[in-house]
Amino acid sequence: MDTARTTANGTRLRRAGAVAAVLVYALVAALCRPLTWPALGAVLAVGLPLCWVGVRRRPRRAEPVDRRSAAVWCALVALGGAVELALRLGPDDTAHPTLSTLADPLLGTYPGRVLGYVLWIGAGLWLVRR
């Protein structure tokens, strides 16, 4: 009973520590304005090690999915990617904005960047832990 409670407390503490680390990282990284070397450093300093760990880590057991699910989600990702690519290859102006151009007003602000870093690093941690 006590062992189970200790394990649960340990898990909760580790989770709280991870959330705090993500928040601190986002608050510091968001100080770097986009299109600068510090911003690139902030992304790569965490992104590369996480990718390294994620690729090397033995994956968790996951229930296999059928081809229909894979096809549906691949089609949706391809649809979004095709729209973005068509806009990127088209005229480069504000009348034909890509997704990143649309996100620029939000990511141009400090709170917007904090949110962006939290979402990005949160997604990365989720992927690495699968």
């Binding site: 902030a42 996480l50 994956p59 990143s100 990365g124 992927l127």
Partner: peptide, 24 residues
């Protein structure tokens, strides 16, 4: 993500998204 090649592709896409939206 059970396949290493898929892990590589998905994590590389995630890294690219971070670079594209937050750093580029």
């Amino acid at each position: 993500l059970r396949w290493r090649s898929a892990r590589l592709l998905i994590l590389a896409t995630w890294l690219w998204l971070g670079w594209h939206f937050l750093a580029r």
